[in-house]
Design a protein around this nucleic acid. Structure first.
Lengths: 90, 90, 90, 90
DNA sequence: GCTACGGCAGTGGCAC
DNA sequence: GTGCCACTGCCGTAGC
């Protein structure tokens, strides 16, 4: 682990590493920013729903079930694939 | 879309609500999907960082600190604004 | 948090605390031990299954689906409860 | 569902396998259930500890260290055995 | 040995 | 202002 520490002192690739690191971190920060923005959007939609008389708690539950259903559908297909594969039919 | 079909006033907003509800839920699901995609992107960047010899755990700490610092900075500016405003200097 | 630090030095309940702590830790260690044993048992059953020509990967998938199905069933009931509650019928 | 339909002997051990498979899966599910229960018990003990003013985080570290130490001790003994054996002293 | 997943703890926001 | 709930991040565990 960590080739980045394999250096005594004022050699060379340190600046490169620093630049790389900075770049990576900034990319992550940017992505997290967008992620936070989306979280905010979701919140707003829930607020709008509430303003229209819907119950957020129930909505969350519904969304959860729908997610589970689609996940289960995918899992089921995956099992089918595995079966077919196991039977050499694929 | 299309809750706009005719209905008598005494029937209540049930059909409208159903369409609205569906729309709201789908919007949320869409946003959550994008959010998940971003989480995946972030994961990838961490993987890339790791491949370049950086330590993800430390990076997370750095990002955390930077976030706290910028939050603090904003806080400070907000207080400064309050002072200036209170002094009628703004 | 932590009343356990509210003491200057050689007073009294320290021993009690030490004994309590030891007891708690040993209980946890015992439970973790059992947990590890169960993990081992599960592993053995998979090995047995494999020895009988079954594919562990597929079995895992099947177990996952069954787990999701039962979870979904529970979620569905939870939503029903929420509806009833929201309608003041509960 | 419904593996119990009639089949001639020349068709192979499919029905047998189905029963076996079901049995294996149920054994695993049972074991996983117990494992989950133990996890719950552990959680409770931590809660109890916390209620008595102990810090769960530190306790976890302590447990970890104890586990490592005992593993190390076993390791050492194993090496000792190897030496003794190699020297024909065992 | 590394990666991925699930569970747990801590934090922040919302309702009362 | 306090208590509760949901979300996020972190850690430990399990699988490949």
């Amino acid at each position: 682990m960590s080739e980045a520490r394999a250096r005594k002192s004022s050699e060379g690739p340190a600046a490169v590493s620093a630049g790389q690191l900075r770049s990576l971190i900034e990319r992550i920060e940017r992505l997290e920013e967008e992620k936070r923005a989306l979280a905010g959007d979701i919140k707003e939609v829930f607020a709008e729903a509430k303003a229209n008389g819907f119950d957020a708690k129930i909505m969350r539950q519904v969304i959860k079930i729908r997610r589970m259903e689609s996940a289960e559908r995918e899992e089921t297909e995956a099992v089918l694939d595995l079966y077919l594969e196991a039977l050499g039919m694929k």
